[in-house]
Amino acid sequence: MYRFLRLPVLLVGFFMAASSYAASNSQPALTTEDALGPQVVQPIEFPHNRHAGLHDASDPTKGGMEINCQYCHTYARRSAVAGIPPLQKCIGCHQNIESVRNKSRIVELFKYWDAKKAVPWKKVHDLPDFVRFNHERHIKRFIEQQDRPVQEACGYCHGDVKEMTVARRQKPLAMGWCASCHEKDHPVVAEGGTPIAGQAYWYSFQKPAAAQDANTKARGPNDCWQCHK
């Protein structure tokens, strides 16, 4: 009796179970798990931790220098790509730092300088050719508009570089991972209560109807052509 109903009832049941599961996960979780990229061998083993790492008050010879990421990766705030600093930048400081002049890495660095050759750094964070990623927009949003610490903002995508020697890809940098942040409802008002000029206007696909108060949320750009070229 009612045998013919068995399959439809089963399917409806499956659908309900799946949708109730989906309902409890309506906000996509920000992917935080690390997906380590390949270990890239660089011509000079550049110690990011020594340059950008936190200052060690008890032993100044051990800790980092807390140099702003954008001091060397200077194009990040004004162009699509962050850029690799020219050799001049390295020499600009290091010609005045006598204490490390005889370290093997610095000797190597000056060899390039004397030979008038650029250091052939290898690319670590390489996005596919069909992706258009803009550093400037992200720096403007997180550092200039929301006043977040530089290392935190860069770290959203680049991981904890200040702990690394040679940089290694730490985040997946895949589309789902980008979208996990872009699909989240982000506050339109900066921490500290400053309204971010035109934030909702620019960053949401839809303009929020309500006035921009502390609770107004907007999402990152979400149409395909924003990132795909």
Binding site: F130, F205, D223, C224, W225, H228
Partner: peptide, 15 residues
Amino acid sequence: TNHTADGLNSQIYNR
């Protein structure tokens, strides 16, 4: 292929 907020008809080759 879908519509963008700018009123363009986008074509995503990967998809």
